[in-house]
Each structure stands twice: as structure tokens, then as C-alpha cells.
Design a protein around this nucleic acid. Structure first.
Lengths: 243, 243
DNA sequence: ACCTGAACACCGTTCAAGT
DNA sequence: ACCTGAACACCGTTCAAGT
């Protein structure tokens, strides 16, 4: 993959001389991991698959990363580095917070089911603290108490990451089903859910069966927005008055 | 594990006659899976490990469950069956919703990292719809529009499950570290975080470094409660006036 | 219909041996 | 210091053969 070798004639035992060993590095490994993640998903991102990218075995990676967990955290932080943060403007804290959440969500959604890494690992990489300083600082400067700001920041992060992960579950299922058109997948999935709801016994499930249309009306993006506004309104209620 | 056999003398080839084959069933398999989950965590819950519980190989399970995913969903629904729901009282919708969220969170937290199954699978088992009918019906009866009720229910579920999962990540780490006292783990973990924050350059991270105490003040339970109230307040703001 | 052993195509990590 | 092949201890699932 790395260097395009001329293939050896089949009767020659293809033994690479030791001098041609690949020159690995942590950065190269992380980039390869990210490529695999984007193209094939998190489940395909194995140590063996990454090593394959350098025509070698998985043992070669352990000189540059401690283990798979560290590799995933490095890939995660690499992706977070794509997030650009504006200058803080506390007077517009609500708009800025909304924009921030949408931006983080967008970047995570771009990279398959990477959000699962964040959920499973409580990341503390460079970019995580950079983002933490932005949100925490914004809330503090807008007048919130440090305790409320810390708690709000924490809940905001959980919400964005968990919703991004939920979205990626659908994406992964779509890929597993061999579909490539999100629209097509979405309609067939929603159709199945609707059919299931309609088939439920109305006596035991009166509200679900009565309002199936409302239950399937909103897609992932609208659901994300709704929860986002719920949280923002809750946070606003805890913000000191600024009339 | 299942039947307490008298051990064979070592010189006897211990070959079970075919008539003594285990009598498997889906229920027995699900119960065994739940036992393993509770005792050793979700990562230990493999088809091979479940089969071991019946002194057989993993292939034997496939007559009763389609695959591992189905087994996990069955275990998940089995756990949800522990949740008791009260009579709906729309006048107390906020209290009832709070109690519901706390109850679901409590049951999930009891069963290791099972919440991961919910997050990865969009469950549609019997108990999921039972819970859905409760929450959706409560919001409808309290006067909410079907659309808002559907969206609110969806966000509530995501919040409870994702927070339960986040909590279980700590629990799993505690077990991996060989600790058994949550207090001990919590203090060492929080101590590490605090040390990391304090060591950050104050020029780039002025707010984090200044308010370390506030950032580490609240534990998982308090963070869960805080987000819960954020959501409830947001939902209340979308509820028609009832003065 | 249900159960089984063996096999297939994978995993992450370790270790001794190479350069 | 960095890279490697081989091995270890695992996975989920399939399949032909048994009862």
C-alpha cells in the first residue's frame, strides 16, 4: 500500500530484504486508522487491518502505540482537531453553544461510528480539553456559577456524543444491509417501525397505535435539534438574569 | 454448572453418552447470559462462554437464538422486565417522569454495561414498547402535542440509556483495575483528573485551571440528576399552560 | 427438531529473534 | 530502537453428521 513494489516473479521466494522494512510512526498509524474508519467503519479498524496497510503484521504497531485503546483515542483526538472554535462572545452564549453542538455533531457524524470511542473511553486528549475550555469558559463568562457550568458542560458533551453515536448505528446498519442511499434506508426502516407500531394491540398500547404518524414524523437531524433546544432552554433557566 | 455431576476417575475417558445431552431452551440461554453479564460484564458474554454454562459448544445455541445480537436483545428485554410502571397520573407528569427516569437508570446500572446493548441496537422488544406507551401516554395525557411527546420521549430514552452506559464504563474500568470499592476507585480517578487539569497551562486554559474544584465536585449520580432536571425543565416549557 | 465436533476466518497481545 | 514471524488464547458462525 505504502510503496508500490514491482511484483516478484512467482518462482522467486518473495522475501523482503531487511533493509526495506517500512518506516512506521505514530502519525502514519493514526492516519491509516482514520482511513480505515472512514472507509469501512469502526468494527473494521483492527490492529491487523491497520498493519496490513503497511504490509506487515500487527506486532509492528506496538512500538508506536501501547495498544488498540490508545490507537482509538489518538484517532478520536485527531478527528476532534477538525473542529474549529470561534472567539467566545458571552453575550451570544446561547447561539454560540448551539453552533458548537451542531459543529461537534457534524464532525463526529462524518466519521462513521467513532463516537462509540468517546462513549467508551472518557477521552482526555488535547482537543477534548480545548473544547472543554471553550464551553466551560463561555458559560462562566456568561455569568453561570462554576458548578452549574461544569455540570452543563458535562451534559452537553454526553448529549452530542450519544446522539452522534445513535445516528452512526443507523449508518452502520445501512452499510451492513448493502444500501448506499440514506433516504432509501431511512424509509424502509421507518416503514418497518410504523408497521410494527400499527400491529400492536390497541387496547394495551392506545397512544402508540393512535399516533403512529407523529412517532415516525421526525428524522435523526430533527430529533437532535429538539433535544439540543431542550438542553439549551434548561441551561438558560439556570443562567442569572441579564435583562 | 447445570447438573452437579460426580467427577469421573481420571483413567476413565469421560465421554457423555448421547442420551444425556442437555435440554436447552431460549429462556435457559437468556438466563445464563444474564448471569454471566452480572458476574463478569458484557465483554465476557460470548456465545462460547454461554455454551460453557451448559457444558457444550457454541454451535448448540444456534437452534434457539439466531445469533449473538438476538441473544443480547433478549437479555436486554429480560432486564427491562424488572421495571415496574405506576398508574399514569397526568397531573403529576413531571414527578412521574422523574421517577420513571430514575427507575430505568437504576435497573440499567444494576446490570453492568448492558446499556451498551440498547445504544447499539435500537431495541424494539416487548418491554421497550411497554415503557414507550407509558412515557408517550403520560405526555399526551398531560396535554402535549403528539409530535412534541414523540420527540421528548425519544430524547428522554437516549439520555437515560447513555448516562447509564457512561456510568458503566467507570464500573468496567474499576473491575479491570481489580478494585472492588467504588469509593476508592472514584477518588483515585477524580484525583487523576484533577491533577491533569491543574497541570494544564493556565494561559491557554484559564477557566479549567481556575475552577478545578467545581469541575470534579459532582459524581455520576449528581450529574445524572442535573441533566434530568435540564430535560424536564425544557419539556415543561413545551407543555401547554395548566395554571 | 435438536444437538454436536470440527473447521473457518477472524481477533489483541506477547515474546524471542532479528537488524 | 525498531521491526518481525510465530504463537497464544480468544472470537462468531457454518456445516455435515449425528440422534
Amino acid at each position: 500500500m505504502a510503496t508500490e513494489d514491482v511484483p516478484l516473479p512467482p518462482w522467486r521466494k518473495s522475501r523482503k530484504p531487511a533493509q526495506l522494512r517500512r518506516q512506521l510512526s505514530q502519525d502514519l498509524i493514526v492516519e491509516a486508522g482514520l482511513r480505515i474508519l472512514d472507509a469501512e467503519g469502526l468494527d473494521a479498524l483492527s490492529m491487523r487491518r491497520v498493519a496490513q496497510e503497511f504490509d506487515t503484521g500487527p506486532a509492528s504497531l506496538y512500538a508506536h502505540v501501547a495498544n488498540k485503546e490508545e490507537l482509538l483515542e489518538l484517532v478520536y483526538d485527531r478527528v476532534l482537531s477538525e473542529i474549529r472554535l470561534p472567539e467566545r462572545d458571552p453575550g451570544r452564549w446561547k447561539e454560540q453553544l448551539r453552533e458548537y453542538m451542531v459543529e461537534v455533531h457534524r464532525v463526529l457524524a462524518k466519521h462513521a461510528d467513532l463516537a462509540r470511542v468517546a462513549l467508551a473511553n472518557i477521552p482526555t486528549g488535547e482537543n477534548s480539553v480545548r473544547m472543554g475550555e471553550f464551553v466551560f469558559g463561555l458559560l462562566i463568562e456568561a455569568g453561570m456559577s462554576p458548578r452549574d457550568a461544569a455540570l452543563s458542560m458535562d451534559r452537553i458533551s454526553l448529549y452530542v456524543v450519544s446522539d452522534a453515536y445513535e445516528g452512526s448505528v443507523h449508518f452502520t446498519r445501512m452499510r451492513a444491509a448493502g444500501l448506499s442511499d440514506p433516504q432509501e434506508y431511512f424509509e424502509s426502516f421507518v416503514g418497518q417501525i410504523a408497521g410494527y407500531y400499527r400491529a400492536l394491540p390497541a387496547a394495551r398500547f392506545p397512544h402508540i397505535t393512535k399516533f403512529v404518524d407523529a412517532l415516525i414524523a421526525d428524522d435523526g437531524e430533527e430529533r437532535f435539534q429538539y433535544g439540543l433546544e431542550l438542553l439549551l432552554d434548561g441551561i438558560e433557566a439556570r443562567m442569572p438574569r441579564t435583562p
